[in-house]
Amino acid sequence: MAQSGKNAKPGKAGKILHRKYYHDRSSCLSDYLLKLVVGIVMLFVSVITLYPFLYILFYSLSTSGRVGAGLLLHPRGFTLESYRILFTNTTNISHAMLISIARSSLGPLVSLTVNSMGAFALSRKRLIGRKIFMIYVLMTMYFSSGIIPHYILMQRLHLAGTFWVYIFPAMFSTFNMILIKTYMEGIPEELEESALMDGANDYIIFFRILLPLCMPVLAAVMLFDCVHQWNAYSDTMIYNSMRTNLHTLQYVLMTFIDTTTQSLQEAESKGEAQALFNPVTARMALTVIVTVPILCVYPALQKYFASGILIGSIKG
């Protein structure tokens, strides 16, 4: 029987045989051990990556007086009070949300335009001076001027202290440009040649022919940029910390950590741990609010990774 299996070309018979052997052999000790290890590792990784988020969600939905420290498997005394307080009492959550949304929608639009046009030009083999331009752009991946020269530049350009410090420095990304360029190089040149023959110029080729064909990679890059913009906090900290009207959600959450730990310590030292307004539940609620948008686009993000669009560039 083994003989016939070996000779069988990949087909139904071979698969059935394979499955039979698979079952027969899994009964040996080392394979039981393997199954055990697999189970334990999967459980461990799932718990440490999932439970923290669940904990924070449950905490934010709990009544502040009834929730202490320790494990939580469900909200204690379900209430939406923390969320209500967050949006009514605390100063600038709604405004910070607007700023966050503005930068994560405008930023990707600008950078997608710059990156895709650059990628188009650099992916044309007929471009004169292509190699020089490539080197000029790629070089920047390997050095950085450092934080201080960059800071001074932002001051001199009058970008510091404005909303545009979120958009302009991020308008070009070598990584994203290469991603789009690689994709464009995979599109048959005949399409372009025939369009050229019909008298189309480069703008028409780019907008009418290449862009529609590059939708998958453009969507992937755009989404990735959105997440980047949404998650960033250090630019707010460095350039806009004095401009409360330009604070983003991430930055507000960061200042929340500092102030709540402080006020918690003060409360503890005064023996008033059961304060009326529990800053911790509010902090948890804010964490949930900041996480939810990522959760919403997560299926799409995962899809692009699974299809290898974003991984391909890492490998080469």
């Binding site: 752009v137 450092g146 001074i152 070009f172 480069d202």
Partner: peptide, 29 residues
């Protein structure tokens, strides 16, 4: 004949020059 390609490349080259190369002059500090 291919000036349009250069025009399209312009924003990218400007961004690279302004945000990556120009700050290098700060190294004199």
């Amino acid at each position: 004949a291919q000036h349009r390609l250069y025009v399209m490349m312009l924003p990218m080259l400007a961004a690279v020059t302004i945000f990556s190369y120009i700050p290098l002059s700060g190294w004199v500090m």
